[in-house]
Design a protein around this nucleic acid. Structure first.
Length: 598
RNA sequence: GGACCAUUAGCUCAGCUGGAUAGAGCGCUGCCCUCCGAAGGCAGAGGCCAGAGGUUCGAAUCCUCUAUGGUCCGCCA
């Protein structure tokens, strides 16, 4: 097996980033090292803040470095002097055609077209692994998401969390982390008792009994079937029996049914969890006690009385001694109770135990994805993980904001009562998993998202889903046409094409965009922000469409050049490389690339 | 009373962890389809980055305060 094949098959954890910006940055720092050795720079300088980035304005060149400005002060030199020397050295490298000092001391670099042209070859060589790599270095990260209560089908809010968490997990995987996707089942609290009682009522109905629905139960239709299933399983043995007889078994039965439902919902969206972790499994196993003992040994558990929260009706407040976690020692605002006045655990206690378990499983990093309404729990969870791991395991908590539903521009109110409750399945059935996923990622996770059932299906430029898919489909169309013309277009052939023929500014523009992909993956992964991938794909598609449109006026920019196989193959190589990166990006988002638009 | 998040073009939003003259789509204005790639394309106008201080070579980005909007605030989940 060749080294390349090993890489493609994931056997080797080689760095495949091929990040041209990182490469040039390395060139800059080694050149600076050389300048230090020659005495034109003092020793002991810190090169960490030095960057090599695409400039905001393309007129400034291909890449800019702040090296001279960053080093000027510690070196006690003028930025321009450093920049001049550095510029002279850098142009010795064949990759760099010009280096100009600009502004306060920026160094603007222009790279040889061959550097950009070779990007297409690299992409064709390694396929959708282009950009995979480096950052994670195999570190283990746990991404917990959805974690909806097992009391009913997933709704729209869960959908966003599911899509976001799943895309984030894929992004981190792509960036070289060893990712575990995990769902925490809240099957230990009072809400599953309510579920069990609701199912029992449906069970009675299945026996043709009429029942009253008390306030706070779950009257949803989805439990009718569960009641009937229960009847089919146990017959009439629970009729006229007290809760003490049936509650536990009905609870287990109902919870399993709900998890089946949720698993099916997730599957319809293409979400596949690695671990479903049961809250209930923590009870009676000594794990909660063990987690709290750990905190106790660190002196972080005490009996005390909390201050009443200000601004909230103080008449409800009764000072009362409780078992508290000193979360303030790890950045929280107030200490948090872990035990209720009746001696039972608070909701927070099993959460602590669950995160303790994650820490003990040896993850290097934890991520929780919560709905924005759980924002109040961020600090206490971070405090808990910080305490439990002695500050060694970082926990990042990403909140997903509300989704506002629209239908043809009109707001669409969701109401459980009115039966206009919109489930994940409703959304997926109407617009499909691909559109659902992409649209959910067209906003930053902590920004509100408008979801219009009609607009997301529109085939127009302002619909990013379509726009990106269309770019991919256009490439597929080029390949089909090329095949008709008898031109070989397998990736190996294209990779060997004379890419020097790609010299037009629009073509180089697309190549530069492709070159940014590895860098984008890194920054997106570093900040745990998969939406950046969606925006990048939109930009890449835009550059590609721009090139395509220019072909209307400038025939020499068309991908198929009659009678000129070599040029056609070079251009097709560019198109195919674009499609590969789009496919890789869509793969992270969990969206299937389209071969044709219909 | 406090915490967290937001505030960027008329509208909806990006802005690559501090870089140069702040971007995209929509909308607006003006051009461009006899045919081979118009389910459109090209160009233009439009900004005190909520406000005020601070940090430094440099701030939409970091810190403090203020304003507005959202989420949340013992034992529920």
């Amino acid at each position: 097996m060749t080294a390349l094949a090993q890489v493609i098959h994931g056997r080797e954890r080689r760095n495949l980033t091929m990040n041209i910006f990182a490469e040039i940055r390395t060139l800059i720092t080694t050149t600076l090292d050389q300048m230090v050795r020659e005495g034109s720079l003092p020793e002991g300088l810190n090169f960490d803040p030095i960057t090599a980035e695409p400039p905001r304005d393309a007129a400034h060149g291909d890449m800019a470095t702040n090296a001279a400005m960053v080093l000027a002060k510690p070196a006690g030199m003028k930025p321009r002097d450093i920049a001049e020397t550095l510029a002279a050295r850098l142009t010795d490298d064949p990759r760099i055609t010009s280096a100009e000092v600009a502004g306060p001391g920026f160094l603007n670099l222009r790279l040889a077209p061959a550097v950009w042209q070779s990007i297409a070859k690299t992409v064709l060589d390694v396929g959708t692994s282009f950009g995979r790599g480096g950052l994670g270095q195999g570190q283990r990260v746990n991404v917990e998401y959805v974690s909806a209560n097992p009391t009913g089908p997933l709704h729209v809010g869960h959908t966003r969390g599911a899509v976001f968490g799943d895309a984030l997990a894929s992004l981190l995987d792509f960036a070289g982390f060893d990712v575990t996707r995990e769902y925490y089942i809240n099957d230990g609290g009072a809400q599953v008792d309510v579920l069990a009682r609701s199912v029992y009522l449906r069970y009675q109905e299945a026996h043709d009994l009429s029942v009253d629905w008390p306030e706070g139960s779950y009257p949803g239709d989805y439990l009718i079937e569960v009641g009937e299933d229960l009847k089919a399983k146990v017959g009439d043995i629970y009729l006229d029996q007290g809760e003490d007889v049936w509650l536990e078994e009905v609870r287990n039965f109902a919870t399993e049914k709900m998890m089946d439902l949720i698993r099916a919902d997730l599957k319809s969206l293409g979400v596949q969890m690695d671990v479903f972790y049961s809250e209930k499994s923590l009870y009676g196993s000594g794990r909660i006690e063990a987690a709290l003992d750990d905190l106790k040994n660190k002196g972080l558990i005490y009996e005390g009385v909390l201050e009443p929260p200000k601004g909230k009706k103080p008449e409800d407040w009764e000072p009362r001694e409780q078992t508290l976690f000193r979360s303030t020692a790890h950045g929280d605002d107030v200490d948090r109770p872990v035990m209720k006045s009746d001696g039972g655990w608070t909701y927070f206690a099993p959460d602590i135990a669950y995160h303790y378990d994650k820490v003990q499983r040896g993850f290097d990093m934890l991520i929780d994805v919560f709905g924005a309404d759980h924002g109040g729990y961020v600090k206490r969870m971070k405090a808990a993980v910080s305490a439990l791991s002695d500050g060694k395991v970082p926990l990042d908590i990403k909140l997903t904001q509300l989704v506002k539903l629209f239908k043809n521009g009109e707001p669409f109110k969701m109401s459980k009562r009115a039966g206009t409750f919109v489930t994940l399945r409703d959304v997926v059935d109407q617009v499909g998993p691909d559109v659902t996923r992409f649209v959910m990622l067209t906003r930053k996770n902590d920004a509100m998202l408008d979801f219009d059932f009609d607009k997301v299906l529109e085939q127009s430029r302002e619909n990013p889903v379509f726009y990106v898919q269309y770019a991919h489909a256009r490439v597929a169309s080029v390949l089909r046409k090329a095949a008709e013309a008898g031109i070989a277009t397998d990736d190996a052939t294209l990779a060997a094409a004379d890419l020097g023929l790609l010299s037009h500014e629009s073509e180089l523009g697309v190549l530069r965009k492709l070159a940014e992909w590895p860098r984008l993956v890194e920054t997106a992964a570093r900040s745990n922000e998969p939406h950046r991938v969606a925006f990048y794909l939109y930009e890449l598609a835009g550059d590609f469409h721009g090139l395509w449109n220019k072909g209307n006026e400038v025939p020499s920019l068309r991908f198929l050049q009659d009678g000129d196989v070599a040029t056609s193959q070079a251009k097709i190589a560019l198109a195919r490389a674009t499609a590969i990166v789009i496919a890789a990006g869509l793969g992270i988002l969990g969206v299937e690339p389209a071969e044709e638009m219909r």
